[in-house]
């Protein structure tokens, strides 16, 4: 049972990280153009260097 004192906080922390990640993506408007985002990975613009 000793192992629970580690496992429960770890599982909560990992889940919480996922939640924080989701909140971040939602706040930064990453779900506004799902179709566009799925197509943009196919374009070769800015492949050699990131967009300034």
């Amino acid at each position: 049972m000793q192992v629970l004192t580690f496992l429960i906080p770890i599982s909560l922390l990992l889940g919480g990280l996922g939640l924080v990640g989701f909140v971040y993506t939602l706040r930064s408007s990453q779900y506004d153009d799902p179709d566009g985002d799925s197509q943009r990975i196919l374009s070769s613009d800015w492949d050699d260097k990131p967009k300034p």
Binding site: S11, L12, G15, G16, G18, L19, F22, V23, L26, Y31
Partner: peptide, 14 residues
């Protein structure tokens, strides 16, 4: 709504 849904989902899974 999506934010609330995400929190409810996270909490209910745990």
């Amino acid at each position: 709504l999506l934010m609330r849904l995400a929190v409810a989902g996270f909490a209910s899974m745990n």
